[in-house]
């Protein structure tokens, strides 16, 4: 197995172009598991953990651009107030050791339907920045995933960053698992409220072949809130609105039975989480 260890972004892209079969490794918390289990025997590894550009984040044009190599620990510490939904998700990832090594770039690279970074990024309408020696493209996250563990990432491309607006309002994330820490999501849900633009964002995890938005629920709630003038004068959300929102979130999911849970339970849990997460986010909004 060849091992490439670029020290700069330009070198990384050049190496990826030259060795499209090389598997990028960032924190290694997914890649090493696959190697250990003999599920993957790549011809080469491309270790991008020493590329300084990937470990940076900055703010420009009202957007945050966060390098693919920023760890969960750093996300929580450095970006918690600006990306509260993502920080909540980051706190639930694995254990402290995994959060120190694991990156959002790696989460996106694995493109697992259970990746915890995905629902809050979907809810925040984030985009993924993909780069190659051919150039750079920005892909809206809901167009990034193409199937379980599949994405639009081309063989010569690397994920350079994700781009997202700092939370314009309250955000929430919750995840159901069968133990109280270090657990892969059985189902997860994120919601983001943008009072200025009157937008609602959602993200569903582990309940469909890919992470996805609950478009129907977003539109329904945006319409309800606009019609009732609730963004301007927030009042408690009526029960039927919460119910309908939860129902539409569930309708967007297409879960399966697997070793971690049943499809029926996943639907049920999504409805409960959608209701709760929205009511918490709305309560935050009313407080401010």
């Amino acid at each position: 197995m060849d091992f490439h260890y670029p020290r700069s972004w330009a070198d990384a892209l050049a190496l990826k172009a030259e060795h499209p079969e090389a598997v990028p490794i960032a924190g290694g918390t997914d890649v090493m598991v696959e190697l250990n289990f003999n599920r993957r025997r790549p011809a080469a590894l491309l270790d991008i953990s020493a590329v300084p550009e990937l470990a940076q984040w900055d703010r420009a044009d009202g957007h945050l651009r966060v390098g693919a190599g920023v760890s969960y620990t750093r996300l929580v510490r450095e970006l918690g107030p600006q990306l509260p939904g993502l920080a909540m998700a980051a706190r639930t990832v694995g254990s402290p050791q995994i959060r120190n090594r694991g990156t959002v770039g790696g989460n996106l690279g694995s493109a697992s339907p259970a990746g915890d970074a995905h629902p809050p990024l979907l809810a925040g309408r984030a985009s993924v920045e993909l780069a190659s020696v051919r150039g750079t493209r920005l892909v809206p996250l809901d167009e990034f995933f193409t199937g379980p563990k599949r994405s639009v990432l081309a063989a010569d491309e690397l994920i350079s960053a994700f781009v997202v607006r700092p939370a314009p309002g309250p955000e929430q994330f919750c995840k159901v698992g069968t133990r109280n820490a270090m657990v892969i999501a059985v189902a997860s849900f994120a919601v983001s409220l943008d009072p200025e633009r009157g937008r609602v964002g959602t993200g569903i995890g582990s309940a469909a072949p890919t992470p996805r938005r609950a478009g129907g629920a977003e539109e329904f709630l945006e319409a309800e809130l606009a019609a009732a003038g609730m963004w301007q004068r927030p009042r408690p959300l009526p029960g039927p609105v919460l119910d309908r929102f939860a129902e539409l979130v569930t309708a967007s999911a297409s879960p399966i039975d697997d070793v971690r849970g049943t499809a029926a339970y996943r639907r049920h849990a999504l409805a409960v989480m959608a209701r709760r997460a929205l009511s918490w986010a709305w309560a935050d909004l009313m407080r401010n």
């Binding site: 639930t92 919750c174 995840k175 133990r179 989480m273």
Partner: peptide, 15 residues
């Protein structure tokens, strides 16, 4: 971490 669901923020006491 103190309620069911632990760190995963699934309840603030509901249910």
């Amino acid at each position: 971490g103190l309620l069911p669901g632990g760190m995963a923020n699934t309840t603030h006491g509901e249910g």
